[in-house]
Computed example of a mutant assay.
Amino acid sequence: MKTIIHKANTRGYADHGWLKSYHTFSFAGYQDPERINFGMLRVLNDDIVQPEMGFGTHPHQNMEIISIPLKGALSHKDSMGNKRAIEVGEVQVMSAGTGLTHSEFNDSTTDAVNFLQLWIIPEEMSVKPNYEQRKFSDSGKKNQLQTVVAPKDKLEDEALPISQQAYIYRSQLEANHSLNVDLRSENNGLYIFVADGEISAGETTLNRRDAIGISEAEVVEISANKDSDLIIIEVPMN
Score class of each variant (00 low, 15 high):
Gly54Tyr: 00
Ile86Arg: 00
Thr110Gln: 13
Thr109Trp: 06
Ser108Tyr: 07
Asn106Tyr: 00
Ser95Met: 07
Ala112Ser: 13
Val113Thr: 09
Ser79Lys: 07
Gln117Ser: 11
Ile66Glu: 10
Glu90Phe: 04
Glu90Tyr: 04
Gly81Met: 12
Lys83Val: 06
Ala112Lys: 12
Thr98Asp: 01
Thr57Arg: 13
Val93Leu: 05
Glu90Lys: 07
Thr110Val: 14
Gly54Trp: 00
Met80Gly: 01
Met80Ile: 08
Asp78Cys: 06
Pro69Val: 08
Val93Cys: 04
Leu70Val: 11
Lys71Asn: 14
Met94Tyr: 09
Glu90Val: 03
Thr101Arg: 10
Leu100Phe: 10
Ser67Pro: 14
Gly56Tyr: 05
Asn82Thr: 10
Ala96Phe: 03
Leu74Tyr: 00
Thr98Lys: 09
Ser95Gln: 05
Ile68Tyr: 15
Asn106Thr: 00
Gly81Tyr: 12
Gly99Leu: 09
Asn106Phe: 00
Val113Ala: 09
Ser103Tyr: 06
Lys71Ala: 14
Lys83Tyr: 03
Asn114Arg: 15
Leu70Lys: 13
Gly72Val: 11
Gly89Glu: 08
Ala85Lys: 12
Ala96Tyr: 03
Ser108Ile: 10
Arg84Asn: 15
Asn114Asp: 09
Gly81Val: 06
Thr109Pro: 15
Thr109Val: 14
Pro69Cys: 12
Ile86Thr: 04
Lys77Thr: 06
Glu104Asp: 09
Gln92Cys: 04
Val93His: 06
Ile86Leu: 12
Asn62Leu: 12
Lys77Asn: 07
Thr101Phe: 06
Gly89Asp: 05
Met80Asp: 07
Gly97Trp: 11
